[in-house]
């Protein structure tokens, strides 16, 4: 039944903690070699799903395979082929970078251990920091070390839980270049993120809200599927106008981007109607624009909860 071209193939996954259903009826397929972006608000079930995929949590319901291995029955085997990078740095801060890598290499029984470690240190630019305590590294270097430890055993599937939170833009870019490099070699990557630029670098995006999968597809497909209309307002008056617009009927999200305001809604006419009072003002320019991925996500966030305002 397993499609060999699918690295992740799970159906109807569900997980609850006590009375709280964290993941509901989640079906997900990711082809081999793809980078799949996992998006959604905090608490939408991203981490729980990732933990189920690598056998850290047992699903209450549903079934499926990762790399052709059953997520329930073959959890131990799965662990040897999956790399999982936790959201919080979870290596030993009182060990050096090299010692941490050695520990991991021993656990996975990696052949030619010293060579594998040295190659990894070299590849990640960690050679100069090999003897530094992991706890003394800055955020970006910690993340690099964690990634090095997660791919040391050459996994076929990499699960990254918000790997770039708190990392500077340059380090983030380098991180993503690396991910793409590895994907080109056939590694499948599932990465959760809150950054739009990162989402746009994924082959495919999966959006979760309240434990359910809401949309999936490429960035263009997700934008097209959202069916929203977006206007862009610029000028001195926008800050004050934002307050008026937020409560206007038909407007589902209002987001400030510096001096500009993005106003979106599913009903194009209703949004246009709500914006009419601004059209005549000389301190505001209003024009319709193509919704960006960010507009779509702010819209989805707003739709899944109450109407929210976001500053980007």
């Amino acid at each position: 039944m397993t499609d060999t071209d699918l690295a992740i193939d799970v159906r109807h996954l569900a997980k609850r903690f006590g009375d709280r259903k964290v993941v509901k009826d989640l079906t997900l397929q990711v082809p081999v070699g793809q980078i799949c972006g996992f998006l959604g608000a905090n608490g939408s079930g991203k981490t729980t799903t990732i933990r189920m995929l690598c056998g850290l949590l047992t699903p209450d319901d549903g079934e499926g395979t990762c790399l052709g291995l059953d997520v329930r029955r073959d959890a131990m085997k799965l662990r040897t082929q999956v790399g999982y990078m936790t959201q919080k740095f979870s290596f030993y801060e009182d060990l050096t970078v090299a010692e941490n890598l050695e520990f991991v290499a021993r656990l996975y029984d990696i052949p030619n251990r010293d060579r594998a470690i040295n190659e990894m240190l070299d590849r990640m630019g960690l050679v100069d920091r090999a003897d530094q305590l992991a706890g003394q590294l800055s955020g970006g270097w910690k993340q690099r070390m964690a990634l090095a430890a997660c791919i040391l055993h050459q996994p076929k599937l990499l699960l990254l839980d918000e790997p770039t939170a708190g990392v500077d833009p340059k380090a983030r870019r380098e991180f993503w270049d690396l991910i793409h490099e590895m994907a080109a070699d056939g590694l499948t990557v599932l990465v959760s993120t809150h950054y739009m630029d990162e989402a746009e670098r994924c082959h495919r995006i999966v959006y979760l809200a309240d434990g359910r999968l809401i949309v999936q597809g490429s960035a263009e497909e997700v934008v097209a599927q959202a069916h929203i209309s977006t206007w862009r307002a610029t000028g001195h008056g926008v800050v004050e106008a934002a307050k008026l617009l937020r409560d206007a009927p038909g407007i589902e999200s209002v987001a400030a981007f510096g001096q500009a305001l993005h106003v979106s809604g599913t009903d194009r006419d209703a949004v246009a109607h709500a914006l009419e009072p601004l059209q005549g003002r000389d301190d505001i320019t209003v024009e319709e624009t193509e919704p960006t991925l960010e507009d779509v996500f702010i819209h989805l966030l707003a739709a899944s909860g109450t109407k929210t305002e976001h500053a980007a």
Partner: peptide
């Protein structure tokens, strides 16, 4: 408490 248990559990050790 330090979160290293999660990592340990995700690796192949009994």
């Amino acid at each position: 408490e330090r979160g290293t248990m999660e990592n340990l559990l995700a690796m192949p050790i009994r």
